[in-house]
Design a protein around this nucleic acid. Structure first.
Length: 430
RNA sequence: GUGGCCGUAGCUCAGUUGGUUAGAGCGUCGGGUUGUGGUCCCGAAGGUCGGGGGUUCGAAUCCCCUCGGUCACCCCA
C-alpha cells in the first residue's frame, strides 16, 4: 500500500489530507458554525498558528498538553515557540495584547497540534471550532456560550449529544478541595495498585475521571468539588443551571467532570456523544477561565469559551447517519466541445461570468470521453457545441441527471444558454 | 511513551502445506457507436507483494529488525 510506506512524501504521522468530497462536508460544518456564531454576534478571530511557548504554558504545568504533548521548537532567532495545542490561550493572549472593549465575543476555526500517538478521533493535527467571550462574568454569558455550542450540534441534526456541567469554583475553592480529596484518596489507597497512589499524589483531580474498574468504588464515594464551593461560586453555578433550564437545554450535573487544563475556574462543561462507543467520545468542551488574562499580564478579565474537534464531529455525524453538506449537483453545466476547444473556451467563460458553475474537458478528448467526463463531474447539464451547433447558432443541452433512458436533448440558442441554465439552476434550488 | 492487530495494483481484497512470467472486482484509459454520458460487451495500462537483513535449491508466504497504518492505555477535540 503506497499510503503505508516509509516515504517522506506522505502526510506526517497523525495528520491527514482532506480531499473532495470529504472537504465539502468539512466546509459545510465550518459554514454552519460560522452562521450560528454570526447570529450570536460573535466575530471571527484569527491568531497565529504558533506562539511563544509561554502562552501555552499558562494552560498548566501539570497538564499533559504542556508536559509531553507540546509541538515546541526553537527558531533561528533562538525564540522558544510552540504550535498551538488548544484554542483558548491564543485568544486570551490576543485580548491582553490588543485590549478590545469588553465584552469581546469571538469565534475561531484553527488547527491544533499535540504530539501524541494517534488513534480514532485523536490526531497530531486536528481542527477545532470554538468561541470565547472575554470581559463578562455574568452567568448568563455562560448560558449563552453553552447555548451556542448546543445549538450548533442541533443545526447539524445530531441527537445523541449529552451536555455535562460542573463547577471548579475559584482557585481557592479548588485548592481547598484538592487537599481534602487527596487526603481521602490516600486514605483509601490500600489494596489498590501503586498507580492509584501515585496519581493521587501527583494529580488527585485526575483520579476522578479514571477508567480503572478497581478504582470506581473509591472514586464514587469521594468528596465532591461542588460540596466545597464558596457561596459566590455556588450561586453562579446555580444561575447557570437555571439559565440552561429556562432555554430547555438538557444537562447533567457531572461532579467528577475534570477538564484537561488547569486554567479553568467556575463553570466547566463537556459535550459527549452516545453514538460513539469509541474512547474519544468528547466532542466539545470548555469552561470559565477567570484568571487567565491576569496570568498573562493583562487586566483581571473573566472569560469563558469552548472548543470542539471537527474530525470528531464528522465521526459522530457518520455514527448518527447525519449527512452534512449538499447532494446538489457540483456543477450547473459541463461543456462538450468538438471544435478543438475554441468554442468551449468561449462558452465556459461566458457561463462562469454569468454566475454559473461550469466546467469543460481539456486535451482534445473524444466527444464520447467528454460526455463521460460530464457525467462524472456531477453536472446538471451537458452542453454540446461543435461545428454544426456554431453554424446553427444553437447548442444541444441534455439533462444528465434524468431517469435512465431519458435522452432528450434540447436545442437552445447559443446567446441564451446562460439564461436558460440559470433558470434551471433556480428551479433546482427551490 | 506502552501494548494488540495489520501492511499484495489508485481503492477493496484473493493468493492453497514456501515451488515456474503475482490475480480478481471497482476505478482509470481505449474501442464497440466515423459527434453523445449514466446500462452492456471487448481490450489495455497499472505492482521494488512497505523497507532491510536472515533461513532455504527456491520467500508475498517462515524468522529478526525497521518504517507505516489501525485500535487501546495515558490523556484529550
Amino acid at each position: 500500500m503506497a499510503a503505508s510506506d516509509a516515504s517522506p512524501y506522505r502526510a506526517p504521522i497523525g495528520t491527514h489530507d482532506v480531499l473532495p468530497p470529504d472537504s465539502e462536508r468539512w466546509a459545510a460544518v465550518v459554514g454552519r458554525f460560522a452562521e450560528r456564531a454570526a447570529r450570536f454576534g460573535y466575530g471571527l478571530v484569527i491568531t497565529p498558528i504558533f506562539e511563544h511557548a509561554e502562552v501555552f504554558e499558562r494552560i498548566g504545568d501539570s497538564t499533559d498538553v504542556v508536559r509531553k504533548e507540546m509541538y515546541d521548537f526553537v527558531d533561528r532567532g533562538d525564540r522558544r515557540l510552540a504550535l498551538r495545542p488548544e484554542g483558548t490561550a491564543p485568544v486570551v493572549r490576543a485580548y491582553v495584547q490588543h485590549r478590545p472593549t469588553p465584552p469581546w465575543k469571538t469565534w475561531y476555526v484553527a488547527p491544533n497540534f499535540r504530539y501524541e500517538r494517534p488513534q480514532k478521533g485523536r490526531y497530531r493535527q486536528h481542527w477545532q471550532l470554538g468561541a470565547e467571550v472575554l470581559g463578562v462574568d455574568d452567568p448568563d454569558v455562560d448560558v449563552e456560550v453553552i447555548a451556542l455550542a448546543h445549538g450548533f450540534y442541533a443545526d447539524l441534526g445530531l441527537r445523541q449529544v449529552r451536555l455535562l456541567v460542573n463547577s471548579m469554583g475559584t482557585p481557592e475553592d479548588r485548592a481547598e478541595y484538592v487537599e481534602v480529596l487527596q487526603r481521602y484518596l490516600l486514605d483509601h489507597a490500600e489494596g489498590l495498585d501503586p498507580e492509584f497512589r501515585q496519581r493521587a499524589e501527583e494529580h488527585p483531580l485526575r483520579v476522578l475521571d479514571a477508567k480503572q474498574e478497581a478504582w470506581q468504588d473509591v472514586i464514587e464515594r469521594a468528596p465532591q468539588l461542588t460540596e466545597h464551593l464558596s457561596a459566590d461560586s455556588r450561586v453562579h453555578f446555580e444561575r447557570v443551571q437555571e439559565g440552561l433550564e429556562a432555554l430547555g437545554i438538557e444537562h447533567e450535573l457531572a461532579p467528577r467532570l475534570v477538564r484537561g487544563f488547569d486554567y479553568y475556574t467556575s463553570t466547566t462543561f463537556e459535550f459527549a456523544s452516545d453514538a460513539l462507543d469509541a474512547a474519544q467520545n468528547a466532542i466539545g468542551g470548555g469552561g470559565r477561565y477567570d484568571r487567565l488574562a491576569e496570568e498573562m499580564g493583562g487586566p483581571a478579565t473573566p472569560g469563558i469559551g469552548f472548543g470542539m474537534g471537527i474530525e470528531r464531529i464528522l465521526i459522530v455525524c457518520d455514527a448518527e447517519g447525519v449527512s452534512v453538506g449538499t447532494d446538489a449537483p457540483a456543477l450547473d453545466a459541463f461543456i462538450i466541445d468538438n471544435t478543438g476547444g475554441e468554442a468551449a473556451t468561449r462558452l465556459v467563460a461566458q457561463l462562469r461570468d454569468a454566475g454559473l458553475r461550469a466546467d469543460r474537458s481539456y486535451g482534445g478528448r473524444s466527444v464520447k470521453a467528454q460526455w463521460k467526463e460530464a457525467d462524472r463531474s456531477g453536472a446538471a447539464y451537458g452542453v454540446m457545441i461543435g461545428p454544426d451547433e456554431l453554424a446553427r447558432g444553437q447548442v444541444g443541452v441534455k439533462d444528465l441527471r434524468g431517469a435512465h433512458g431519458d435522452k432528450e436533448q434540447a436545442e437552445v440558442v447559443l446567446e441564451q444558454v446562460a439564461a436558460w441554465l440559470l433558470q434551471r439552476a433556480e428551479e433546482r434550488a427551490r
